[in-house]
Design a protein around this nucleic acid. Sequence first.
DNA 1: CGTGAACTTGATATGCCTCAATACGAGTGG
DNA 2: CCACTCGTATTGAGGCATATCAAGTTCACG
Lengths: 249, 249
Amino acid sequence: MNHQRPCREDARDPAPWSNGAQAIGVPPFADVLADTHRVMRRAGSTLKLEGEVAGGHYVLFSGWLAVAKSMLDGHRQIVDVVLPGGFLDAVSADLCTSVVEIEALTDVSYAAIPRQDWQRLLRERPDLARASDGSVRAAMSRMSARMLRLGKGSADSIVAFALCELCLRSTGGGLSEGWAYHIPMTQQQLGDFCGLSAVHMCRTLQRFRRDDILELRAPMRMVIRDLPALAAIAEIDPPVLRQQIVPAA
Amino acid sequence: MNHQRPCREDARDPAPWSNGAQAIGVPPFADVLADTHRVMRRAGSTLKLEGEVAGGHYVLFSGWLAVAKSMLDGHRQIVDVVLPGGFLDAVSADLCTSVVEIEALTDVSYAAIPRQDWQRLLRERPDLARASDGSVRAAMSRMSARMLRLGKGSADSIVAFALCELCLRSTGGGLSEGWAYHIPMTQQQLGDFCGLSAVHMCRTLQRFRRDDILELRAPMRMVIRDLPALAAIAEIDPPVLRQQIVPAA
DNA sequence: CGTGAACTTGATATGCCTCAATACGAGTGG
DNA sequence: CCACTCGTATTGAGGCATATCAAGTTCACG
């Protein structure tokens, strides 16, 4: 599980932050962050282990991160996914140990900022503070929505929701019929995200495909064929969901 | 579902903030909050509906709040529970509409603070800002932990976790054998919290009782008889969990 | 003593998991 | 170019955990 996977085709994306959470052309807050604490990691590497002493804050420049927790039997739940432009504070109430494990879903580049520096930055840069606040808020909204489906929804509803969420976020807000996008996760990982086994994730995707809701060009390259149907299964209204889960620009 | 339930026996708790999240003797930040925006509500009332325009921040003085979301078929998931001393910002990324519905589990008294005032307070009172930050962090930790069990755990594991969490939080950190405490929720509500049907919640509690893990003095009056067993099922270490999910004092 | 809400218990249904076998596709080495 | 291999996706069969439906029971309150 912890081995270095070979860099995937998708990892060398031509435009690293063209599909960021904020659809921006430059890394966020590059002036204050870029040169000081910049880190890069390969797809598949683990940045931070559950229970480990946590360093501080992350600002993701490019790539996708998974925030996960595991049970003793090895079953894993991906609690959230961080996209380019996203912020991450993987620290629990005690300000010290991390509650989660962070894994790079693709090659990533990010800034790792010690707590002290981060506090100072927040004071000095109100725009950063506002962005961080919006990011936290969006994360809570997303998690609430996913919790609802994890607890009380069918497999269909949570998969549909995840597909909508990731499309909305990865394309910076676009969610329309015929829209093609890529989810840089295996079905196993998407299953961990949706609280499903990889097998059932596969079956669910197949069913969507048979019902002409979804087209799968290649593994994990999605095309939404019937947005109304997908939105209905997910029980969402795309523009409303967008406002709730992607931070305002 | 939305009717005013009669005030329950448990609602008139003798010491309103004796079992607060921070185990404090006075309402938190009473000097700045108490007189200005104080509100009281009866058990069972709904403070804020999903999708409604959201007012601002809440600081809970006494009583318990449930933060919930519902599916179209009426099934509900309680996403988090707020205890005395807790903060709540039920607003999504767009800073405007609420993503959740808030229900009073008991009679409650709280401060409802408009966004502008709240921002100002945070600037003026670093201690409040710190407390608010800690509260958000703790909430994220709790939600992550519950998401893991919602997605990948058994009914036993999430019920055990919820029992531990609510004991830890409501007693301000205590979690030990023979500890008696009260959860002011029906089994239906606890089921909504754990992603289970009321019937299965009942059966699970019965099983814990038969296995001498739990004693149920009266409905929802819990006594933990075998903490090691309960902690093992929940897959937690009580002191560690405490640090992660209850904000530092 | 009647009423209604919560809780309890039983019977049945089903959605999802697990195990297991197979197919596919990309990279590797001959 | 082909054979090999390893990760990933697919498909089938069977089992189990949890939901649902349906009767009770208990208890607080009027």
